[in-house]
Design a protein around this nucleic acid. Structure first.
Ligand SMILES: [Mn+2]
Ligand SMILES: [Mn+2]
Ligand SMILES: [Zn+2]
Ligand SMILES: [Zn+2]
Lengths: 133, 133
DNA sequence: CTCCTATTAGTAACCATTATCATTATTAAC
DNA sequence: GTTAATAATGATAATGGTTACTAATAGGAG
């Protein structure tokens, strides 16, 4: 394992912010100023194949990465873009229902939420007062 | 409503293949050979804002569009990339659970499945015989 | 018809991600 | 430790889906 890969993994494990490749690049650059963005992408790809990291291909946005490889879902804030964990199991019968309804053999599934984080929700209520303070 | 927009919407409503912008462009081009790809993108964007079409920003792939605006989920075949409908409701208590677990006010959610369509599943079983003929 | 505004076709720009490749680091063998 | 084989790196170019720009066109109100 190279110094670059180790640094990327350590930075990834040291945050719960689900950074993008570019953000991780900036983080690692503080330690290894000569690392290149391509190296970050390459190693994130390798580590997500090896199960050391999770590649979050959340719909309609750049990829983000997660050092927490336990299965869990995510919410994205519609205000600030932050992605937070949703520690929640997807009911088995939901997957079974999808298999039955579609005729596919289901191999995996993702549950993605959009919403408003506490900070953005507060700002929003303050601004329009429309949704039951 | 321009001829271009009408043609795009009609083509979209005439298929359940969830075409990409480029695929739709090829379809519409048979009727309006001088239409441009930019026009297709622009009108799909407008129509999805107006609720006439659905923009599917499926994780890690190009956008696809859906003329069926009723809420439903999708499966993507890991073999051929086809996207099929999964007529299924997302249980309310799942959303409530996510709100509680994350602290976000949930505004929407997507359930995406990956799997093997009947055709690709058959080919796959034929090739390796590993998963219960 | 004439003016006005919206829309179009064509093309350039954008930006996240991948590919390429000469150089450099790591590993294994001696 | 030296050497040879192999793998990874940094720098940069290429890719591909999407958006932005702009001059030309279409079409509706008066
Ligand atoms: Mn996470
Ligand atoms: Mn559909
Ligand atoms: Zn927020
Ligand atoms: Zn298939």
């Amino acid at each position: 394992m190279t110094a670059q890969r180790r640094a990327i993994l350590e930075e990834l494990r040291g945050t719960d912010a689900h950074p993008s490749a570019t953000e991780l690049y900036e983080m690692v650059r503080r330690r290894l100023p000569r690392i290149s963005l391509g190296t970050v992408y390459r190693n994130l790809e390798i580590m997500s194949e090896e199960g050391l990291a999770l590649k979050l291909e959340h719909a309609g946005a750049e990829c983000r990465f997660d050092g927490n490889v336990a299965p869990h879902s995510h919410v994205r804030c519609l205000g600030c873009g932050r992605i937070s964990d949703v520690p929640m199991d997807i009911p088995r019968e939901l997957v079974a229902g999808a298999a039955k309804a579609s005729g596919y053999r289901i191999a995996g599934c993702r549950l993605e939420f959009d919403g408003w984080c506490r900070k953005c929700g507060r700002k929003r209520r303050g601004r329009c007062g429309a949704d039951g303070a």
